[in-house]
Amino acid sequence: MSNFSLSSRSVKDVAVITPRGYINDIGAVRLEQESGQYLDNGLKKLVVDFSDVQFINTIGLSIFLSIVQNTQDHGSQLCFTNMKKDHLEIFEIAGLIGHVKVFKDENAAFTYLNGRTPDGKKTASQTTAV
């Protein structure tokens, strides 16, 4: 149940949060708290990287709902990256997709947010919101 873990880093004005494992237990509320801290500290750009997320249930969905709401309340931007098909599906059913920008990877999200990749390279516009 609780093979959930979390790491995060900030790249200039962008916070990248990387949850791992199963987001299906109340322990994953840490994800909500972590993003809330970045927002409270004034960061306006948030990226959640789904590469290592294995499973999301309704509890996980509810945690993302809070993150979306909180980001909107702060007037900040929220991007999801590296989502698998079943992640996208559950977010679609819940009507969450319309409230976030979804990118295939971190580079694409950074390009959308800053016009450059995390390593600073300018890229051609590839903001293909899914």
Binding site: I59, G60, S62, L65, Q69
Partner: peptide, 19 residues
């Protein structure tokens, strides 16, 4: 209280209700 918190998250997740 843990049980109730989980229940509340499940319900809000089901209906896309942030609060």
């Amino acid at each position: 209280s843990e049980k109730m918190k989980a229940a509340l998250y499940i319900i809000t997740g089901m209906f896309s209700v942030p609060t």
